[in-house]
Amino acid sequence: MGISTFSRRQALAIAAAAVVMPKLGAAEEVVDLNWDDLLPEGQTGLAQSLQGVVQHDQSALASQQPEATGFRSDWNGKIVRLPGYMVPIEYEGTGVTAFLLVPFIGACVHVPPPPANQLVLVQTNEPYESEGLFEAVNVTGMFGASASSLQIADVGYVISAEKIAPFY
């Protein structure tokens, strides 16, 4: 699955954000987020409640995605750090250049995707040498609420990554 799965307009917007975004420096404040921070105020723990057994012989997993109940724009344009699991969708050579950051192992592949407000599309100019599907990573970069529809799920957020590191 390549970049053709999202619209050209979305791909251009992500690429433009990556070019305009300043390089991370020691003086810039990085906001540490967790997955509950992406949910509307008053909601918590949604990601854990979505995990469960999937009937793989039924309809496509994307069609089983629950509807998002709202989005947060508090961190639009800010540099954030968010841990999660990588679902690669675009490669350059052996490095990943676009992926979904998901809150739990199996999301979008083995279980239905979580709501769009629990999925982040990550784009990076520097290919990341992934160790495989669902690698745990910390992503640091410019954050934005930006709805997009991919073949495997609807996504509510985007990060133009400046740094991707294994998360232990």
Rank of each mutant, 00 (worst) to 15 (best):
M1I: 11
S7A: 11
S7L: 08
R8N: 12
R8V: 13
R9I: 09
L12V: 13
A15K: 13
A17S: 14
A17I: 05
A18D: 09
M21R: 10
P22C: 05
K23I: 10
L24N: 06
G25K: 09
G25P: 01
G25Y: 01
A26S: 15
A27M: 09
A27Q: 12
E28P: 00
V30Y: 03
V30N: 02
D32F: 06
D32E: 14
D37C: 09
D37V: 06
L38T: 04
P40L: 06
E41I: 10
E41R: 13
G45R: 11
L46E: 12
A47M: 04
S49I: 08
L50M: 14
Q51F: 07
V53H: 10
D57L: 12
Q58H: 12
Q58N: 13
S59L: 14
S59F: 12
S59N: 12
S63V: 10
Q65D: 04
Q65R: 03
T69C: 08
F71G: 03
S73G: 15
W75H: 15
K78N: 09
I79P: 02
V80I: 12
R81H: 06
P83G: 09
M86C: 03
M86Y: 00
E90H: 11
E92W: 12
E92G: 09
E92I: 08
E92H: 14
V96R: 01
T97H: 04
A98F: 07
F99Q: 01
L101K: 00
I105V: 15
G106L: 00
G106T: 01
A107P: 00
A107D: 15
V109G: 02
V111L: 09
P113S: 06
P113R: 02
P114W: 00
P115T: 11
P115D: 07
L119H: 02
L121S: 09
V122A: 05
V122F: 06
Q123Y: 15
Q123G: 13
N125M: 14
P127S: 03
Y128G: 00
E129Y: 10
S130C: 03
E131I: 07
E131H: 11
G132I: 05
G132C: 05
G132T: 05
L133G: 01
F134R: 00
F134L: 01
F134Q: 01
A136D: 06
A136R: 09
N138G: 08
N138C: 05
V139R: 00
T140D: 03
T140F: 02
M142F: 06
F143I: 04
F143M: 03
F143Y: 12
F143C: 02
G144M: 11
G144T: 13
G144D: 10
A145D: 07
A147K: 12
A147D: 15
A147V: 10
Q151F: 15
Q151P: 05
I152M: 15
V155K: 00
V155H: 01
G156N: 03
Y157R: 04
I159Q: 00
S160E: 07
A161H: 01
E162P: 00
Y168K: 14
